[in-house]
Design a protein around this nucleic acid. Structure first.
Lengths: 213, 213
DNA sequence: TAGATTGTTAATCGATTAACAATC
DNA sequence: TAGATTGTTAATCGATTAACAATC
């Protein structure tokens, strides 16, 4: 389910949300190079879309730039972060700390984008008890209690296929709001739970289809 | 650049291509459970879209089902694979075999979807020479020659930010057609090279924005 | 046969692009 | 001032949804 429905209360559509996260990455890169201002044309060039679309996106955020110089990068970053809800700290758990799960824990800079890893789970006794990016890996049978106690809102699911649905069920019971599903299983969850399916193999297939045909 | 332009020759749009890869995963799951036939309504239910959209997608593939029972799963899988170009074997290289790169090599079932890992590179002497999913990790300074010799068409880029553009340049020189970019750098490549940006942190931000606001 | 489902066209919806006055 | 750029509306484009005759 890549194209989710946009909740009616927000003026920000799903395509815009997706672009905003990427703009943020681009702006970060510009800021690192001490660039302070960017025009819609420049940003469009970097993103690979049109200046018109960039301006539309910011128009929806009610973000206003400078009619001569363009957009102030620091302000733009702040607006985007606020609109994506990255101002508050959202608590994240990683379910399954094998190869993929541990990579997510160590490689993804959650802390830089309004999130914090607060729990990690596995069933392998060799992995349970080890530390991963500041948290101790817990036994998966404590998932409901720990996620509930630590108020986990988001979870990344990187377990074997056979465990996927059972883990999802427990996450829902623990009150998690959204699941990033890296398993090749379609999860069945109540309608109010957001699931984003991110099977890495799909990205390879999509690229293959685009680049090689 | 999530929303790429569709090349004019193909009747299959980018949104459809994205869905097709996910249908394939769902069909795999159904086939494992010895289900032989699926209706557009059932598939839509599993994917999270409408039966009408499912039928449109297959209509564009000129795939024809049975007006009473629905679609034969084995036939459907074959049609989708053919349309995505997964019939031939596409050669893949992984650039950067740290935590993320080695996870991609070991975790992603390329061989099941018309791809084959034929090369892997790193600059770390401790990693060079080790074996990863059937290939030996080579020194990154041999990237151009090896990728060219082994006819690498697709590459996954999982190197530190500082190395990203340089690696991309070399991949282009080696004749690679598409790059799956996991770094948080915007790559500058010639127009005929496909780049798909897949920064994992963006998925987390998107989920956060959807689930928590 | 009756009923469920497809194949396909047309209608609708929403996202992107174009255009240009207002701004600095 | 002149020129580049934004803010914003309207037009266009394309994707999704609806509808229903044809099919098995």
């Amino acid at each position: 389910m890549n194209n989710q429905k946009t909740p009616s209360q927000s003026p920000i559509t799903w395509p815009t949300t997706q672009r905003l996260t990427e703009y943020l990455i681009i702006l970060e890169e510009l800021a690192e190079n001490d660039i302070e201002v960017v025009s819609s044309r420049q940003l469009a060039q970097l993103y690979g879309n049109t200046a018109s679309q960039v301006r539309q996106d910011f128009f929806r955020l009610k973000h206003t730039g400078n009619a001569t110089r363009g957009y102030n990068i620091a302000e733009l970053q702040a607006t985007i972060r606020r609109n994506l809800g990255l101002d508050e700290v959202h608590k994240v758990a990683i379910i399954g700390c094998g190869k993929l799960g541990s990579t997510l824990a160590l490689h993804v800079p959650l802390a830089d984008y309004g999130m914090r890893l607060v729990a990690a789970f596995d069933i392998d006794p060799d992995i349970i008890g080890s530390r991963l990016s500041g948290v101790q890996v817990e036994n998966a049978d404590k998932m409901i209690k720990i996620c509930h106690d630590r108020q986990v809102q988001l979870a990344a699911l990187s377990v074997p296929k056979t465990a996927a649905q059972h883990c999802a069920d427990r996450l829902v019971m623990a009150g998690v709001r959204g699941i990033l599903n890296y398993t090749r299983v379609r999860l069945r969850v109540p309608a109010h739970i957001r699931v984003q399916n991110r099977q890495i193999i799909c990205s390879f297939m999509q690229l293959c289809s685009r680049a090689c045909t």
